[in-house]
Amino acid sequence: MNTSVIVFPGSNCDLDVVHAISSALGTQADLVWHDDNELPQGTELVVLPGGFSYGDYLRCGAMAAKSPIIRAVIEHAGSGLPVLGICNGFQVLTETGLLPGALLANRTLSFICDFCHVRVERNDTPFTSLYRKGQVLRIPIAHYEGMYFLPGDELAKIETANRIVFRYCSPEGEVDDSFSPNGALNCIAGITNEAGNVLGMMPHPERASESILGSVDGLPLWQSLSRWLEGRNRS
């Protein structure tokens, strides 16, 4: 799997993603500087990692969304290849317009770092094919701005279009606002674009990819992507 992990000034989960992919799949990922205009030849997966791009000043992800590399990321997404935005990367994706909505301050008005539970709502995406639908994942979050927001009518539209991939839930899989750590509308923890090849998620799969870190529930995400890309290359 040829992966490009975009590094913005202030990204801090870039090396974690590289490490997770390498320990999960045994493949190396490239770090790509935000100032570059092109993705490395042959890039299959683009990851926008977590962190505090541009210090999270102004609005999380707003300045990163104006980086030169973003044009290439948008083109990449347009070609049908997968783009994954994790945490700050999700915020960048909403700011670029590749995904709808915005991530607002947690309703607790505090940074939250903790394991949480999310339910897999779709397993027909390149990112989730190796999960069961309804499977509950134990996976960390770490953010101040993670409350997913979209105005009511548009929210209804993405619900109808089945664009929600992960929702916060109880350890048993019950979805309810009381299990949402940040107050996200409809307990949304991750969504895709219409085509299903761009995923934004607040939880960190790279932090749940090794048993020594307390969870391997993020592993199938990398494995799903690798399998999906192999299938695509064969056909």
Partner: peptide, 11 residues
């Protein structure tokens, strides 16, 4: 209007 202003609410 209509966007939850958590800070405003808290203050």
């Amino acid at each position: 209007e209509g966007v939850l202003d958590t800070q405003g609410k808290a203050v």
